[in-house]
Each structure stands twice: as structure tokens, then as C-alpha cells.
């Protein structure tokens, strides 16, 4: 591929690569970090990256918001001038789901802290083994 071809490839796809990098960061944080709160943050980063990925599917070059009252004239319902509303709808649901999971995870973390007094996973394992 020529240099122009590579540049075209990057311009066409770079947003997706950024979100993939974010997903990998979140995933790495969840697996490798030993502090429970850091793992929860990693989980949130993973979910947020997926949400951004979906939302970026919806954009169209030069298009406007999907609220018809703001449009006038012949462009009113031309799909090429209005962004795709469906991924936004799906991600409203996904945001709520991630908030709910976060709430339950934090409640469990509070219970773990009440029981063990620490939030480091290796210390908790030591306490569990010596109990």
C-alpha cells in the first residue's frame, strides 16, 4: 500500500483503534491490579470504551442531531444528514447497566472491607488462609 493508502487507512479507522486501546487498558487493569477498587475502575474503563465504540458507529460526516424540530426545509428527514440514532439508544441502556453493576460491586466491596479490614487481594487471601 502506498503512503497515501496508509494515511487513508489511519484516518478512516483511528477512532476505533483508540477505543480498542482503551478496552485493553481496562481489561489489563482488571486482571493485573491487586487492589479491588482499581479492578472496579478497570471494569468501568472497559465498559466505557465499549460504549464509546458503539457511539462512534453512529456518526456521519457533516450530519446533525437526530432531533427533527431543529431542522428546516428539504433536509428534514434525509438519512444522510441526520446521525444514526440506534446506537445512542442502545448505549443509554448500556450506561445504566454499567452504573448498576458498579453499584453492586461497591456494595460488595464495603462488605469485604467490613469483614477483612483491607482491600488488597493478596492480604485478603492471607487472612482467609490463616483464619
Amino acid at each position: 500500500m502506498t503512503a497515501a493508502g496508509y494515511i487513508n487507512l489511519i484516518i478512516a479507522k483511528y477512532n476505533y483503534w483508540i477505543y480498542i486501546v482503551l478496552m485493553c487498558v481496562g481489561l489489563w487493569g482488571m486482571i493485573v491490579k491487586r487492589n479491588l477498587v482499581k479492578k472496579i475502575i478497570g471494569m468501568n474503563i472497559l465498559q466505557t470504551a465499549i460504549i464509546l465504540f458503539y457511539v462512534s458507529i453512529a456518526t456521519k460526516k457533516g450530519a446533525a442531531l437526530p432531533i427533527l424540530a431543529h431542522h428546516i426545509g428539504a433536509h428534514r428527514t434525509d438519512p444522510a444528514t441526520i446521525i444514526n440514532p440506534l446506537p445512542h439508544v442502545l448505549m443509554l441502556t448500556a450506561i445504566v447497566v454499567s452504573v448498576a453493576t458498579l453499584g453492586v460491586a461497591l456494595a460488595l466491596t464495603i462488605n469485604i472491607y467490613k469483614r477483612y479490614g483491607t482491600l488488597e487481594e493478596d492480604e485478603i487471601h492471607d487472612l482467609m488462609r490463616n483464619a
Binding site: N15, Y16, T59, K61, L86
Partner: peptide, 15 residues
């Protein structure tokens, strides 16, 4: 992603 439609393409399947 190599087979993705371009970002912001109004003729992509999703659009």
C-alpha cells in the same frame, strides 16, 4: 477493524 466501513460513512450498512 480492517474490514470496517470508514468512520462517518453515510453509506455504511449501519446507516
Amino acid at each position: 477493524t480492517t474490514d470496517f466501513p470508514d468512520w462517518g460513512d453515510p453509506s455504511s450498512p449501519a446507516a
